[in-house]
């Protein structure tokens, strides 16, 4: 009888422990809503600057954006639950050594944010104005070195801040053909 009990116990125990490991219980299906916005970026490019001048650019877009395949505009704020969208920018400076434009890191103290905010990584945050329902950013770069520069906004996408309870929104910025993709300017003493 005891042998039978032991055998039954072994069978039951192996039955219990041979189940496969289940997938991670924390798996989350990320969803990002993809939209497009056209010509939201405005750059005050005078093409020629003096050291100490400030070059401004701004990117503003409505809280309500059209969506492909839908008859109603999408409320981006209510969907994402966040009042900030982020995008990056890059500035390049011509180098005679390489005869090409090289990326330039900008110290935070040379960046101004009249609307929205910007950090040391050249990451801009557009912030929703509740009065106008416009996500706004207006950033200034204080030009402290002479040289030839480029601002490249040809591939620009904005992303909503992370919210675990709501879908993310990604907005691709499209520039129309009559606007330049690369902006060249010169800074002189």
């Amino acid at each position: 009888m005891k042998k039978n009990i032991a055998l039954i116990g072994i069978v039951l125990g192996s039955l219990f422990w041979t189940q496969c490991s289940p997938p991670d219980d924390d798996y989350i299906n990320w969803n990002t809503i993809e939209l497009k916005v056209k010509n939201a970026l405005k750059i005050e490019n005078k093409e020629n600057y003096t050291v100490g001048d400030t070059l401004f650019f701004e990117l503003n877009f409505s809280r309500y954006l059209p969506e492909d395949g839908q008859t109603t505009d999408l409320d981006v704020y209510e969907t994402s639950g966040v009042n900030k969208f982020t995008y990056g920018f890059g500035m390049l400076k011509y180098s005679s050594f390489s005869d090409s434009y090289q990326g330039v890191s900008i110290n935070e103290k040379y960046l101004l944010s009249e609307k929205g905010s910007v950090n040391y990584a050249s990451q801009v945050f557009t912030i929703l104005n509740p009065d106008t329902n416009i996500y706004e950013s207006r950033i200034g770069i204080i030009l402290v070195e002479e040289g030839e520069y480029q601002l490249d906004f040809s591939y620009l996408t904005l992303y909503s801040d992370y919210n675990p309870d709501k879908p993310s929104v990604g907005i691709e910025h499209i520039i129309s053909e009559d606007l330049p993709l690369l902006l060249n300017f010169r800074v002189s003493k």
């Binding site: 969803n31 969506e67 839908q70 999408l74 209510e78 969907t79 309870d165 709501k166 879908p167």
Partner: peptide, 15 residues
Amino acid sequence: ISRTVNNLGYGVYAY
């Protein structure tokens, strides 16, 4: 995820 239309006539996605 599903899309609905809110009281103001704008689309909203929600989980």
